[in-house]
Computed example of a mutant assay.
Amino acid sequence: MKSASIVEFIRGTYQTNEFIPLHVPRFDGNEKNYVMETLESTFVSSVGKFVDNFEHKIESFTGTAKAVATVNGTAALHTALYMAGVRQGDLVITQALTFVATCNALHHMGAEPVFVDVSPVSLGLCPKAVDAFLCEQAEVTETGCIHKPTGKRIQAVVPMHTFGHPVELDELLAICQKWNIALVEDAAESLGSFYKGKHTGTIGDFGALSFNGNKIITTGGGGIVLCQSSDDGVHTKHLTTTAKVPHAYEFFHDEPGFNYRMPNINAALGCAQMEVLDSYLQQKRQLAGRYRDFFSDSEYKFVSEPSYAQSNYWLNAIICPDQEARERLLKETNAAGVMTRPIWKLMHRLPMFENAIRADLNNSEFIEAHLVNLPSTPIKFDVIEERNES
């Protein structure tokens, strides 16, 4: 299949000859109304009704005990890791095939990533690879799970639900329980994705969502910590609001906290976006279905959701037959005004993580060399169909 055919298909799908970006936000509902309400109220910062409303909407949608809104997804992950007991000097098992924010959060806590391979099905952390690494290099002691070669504590496992495709969470959870390790889900890309009927980010000890401008819904910038108990939720909220003890006028803080509160004006945007999330998810599944059908008889393999899960298809992706085909597709589609992107460079190829402990990364390296992301902004297909009919 030639790149020109792919460009023609994507232009036909989006019904435009203009530049087609990878993923942009849509504002189809009450975004302006709610944002204007915050401006008129003057409560645009960390106090206001929309923060509480947004957290409640996320709780209702995901089924988590408590959602705590933060200023961005990295702050949410940092907080989740802290709440899970990760501290300076700890090791955290995660994937090299991830966005750099996953590892940045660890770095700034003084923790170190340990890179283990991903599954070719989910593109996320592989349970068999995690178990093999632990069986070979770890032991459980009175002080926790210890990495035998370094003597450092392995405190958490952090899978990332790549492009919204859920990892095998039951298997990872069983491994974490066996080795006395916390499971923290980097669910930044997976709002609207479900693992065996449960929302991602709600199965591990903590989860973290992102609402960056390129996510399925956006608050401009923002994140959420998903807490599996109300007590953890109360503590997380306290921690992210500078650990200030409530008082009519005194300033007293009872532990080192973070100033990670989501501003009310961002939460207002999020409340409006949550009202249209279901329609975006439906449109994304329709788009993914069209891509799947288009590539079904080609040398390109469309990345479909795992059989055990329902993905939000945040970013659609294909696996190219070889690296040369990948490079050609990236070059020719972008030259034609259709934005495509490779997956991220593996984390151990970056200078700040090149010395990190790592296992064999064969699947990660294959995906890095073969995967291309395609335009994934949700489309109102009924509007396009009506336009075509007229």
Results as ranks from 00 to 15, higher is better:
residue 173 L to H: 09
residue 175 I to E: 14
residue 176 C to S: 11
residue 176 C to K: 13
residue 177 Q to R: 12
residue 178 K to F: 02
residue 179 W to G: 01
residue 180 N to Q: 14
residue 181 I to E: 15
residue 181 I to L: 11
residue 183 L to W: 14
residue 184 V to H: 09
residue 185 E to Y: 06
residue 185 E to S: 02
residue 185 E to W: 04
residue 186 D to N: 15
residue 189 E to M: 06
residue 190 S to L: 10
residue 190 S to E: 12
residue 193 S to C: 06
residue 193 S to N: 09
residue 195 Y to P: 04
residue 196 K to S: 13
residue 199 H to M: 06
residue 199 H to R: 05
residue 201 G to Q: 07
residue 204 G to V: 06
residue 205 D to F: 04
residue 205 D to Y: 07
residue 210 S to I: 02
residue 214 N to K: 12
residue 216 I to G: 15
residue 217 I to A: 07
residue 217 I to Q: 11
residue 218 T to Q: 12
residue 220 G to A: 10
residue 223 G to I: 07
residue 225 V to P: 02
residue 225 V to Y: 11
residue 226 L to M: 13
residue 230 S to F: 14
residue 231 D to G: 04
residue 232 D to K: 13
residue 233 G to P: 03
residue 234 V to T: 11
residue 236 T to M: 13
residue 237 K to D: 04
residue 238 H to E: 05
residue 238 H to V: 00
residue 239 L to P: 01
residue 239 L to Y: 09
residue 240 T to W: 02
residue 240 T to Q: 02
residue 241 T to L: 03
residue 243 A to P: 02
residue 243 A to R: 05
residue 245 V to Y: 12
residue 247 H to T: 06
residue 250 E to K: 10
residue 253 H to M: 07
residue 253 H to L: 02
residue 254 D to G: 01
residue 255 E to Q: 13
residue 256 P to F: 09
residue 256 P to L: 08
residue 256 P to E: 13
residue 257 G to A: 05
residue 258 F to W: 14
residue 261 R to E: 11
residue 262 M to Y: 14
residue 262 M to V: 05
residue 262 M to E: 12
residue 263 P to W: 15
residue 264 N to M: 08
residue 265 I to S: 14
residue 265 I to M: 13
residue 266 N to G: 03
residue 266 N to R: 12
residue 267 A to H: 05
residue 269 L to R: 13
residue 272 A to G: 07
residue 272 A to W: 03
residue 273 Q to P: 00
residue 275 E to Y: 07
residue 275 E to A: 08
residue 276 V to N: 15
residue 277 L to G: 10
residue 278 D to M: 01
residue 279 S to H: 05
residue 279 S to G: 00
residue 280 Y to M: 01
residue 280 Y to D: 01
residue 281 L to H: 15
residue 283 Q to T: 00
residue 283 Q to M: 00
residue 284 K to D: 13
residue 286 Q to Y: 01
residue 288 A to S: 08
residue 289 G to F: 04
residue 290 R to H: 11
residue 291 Y to K: 14
residue 292 R to H: 01
residue 292 R to A: 00
residue 294 F to I: 00
residue 294 F to H: 06
residue 295 F to H: 09
residue 295 F to C: 05
residue 295 F to I: 01
residue 296 S to F: 04
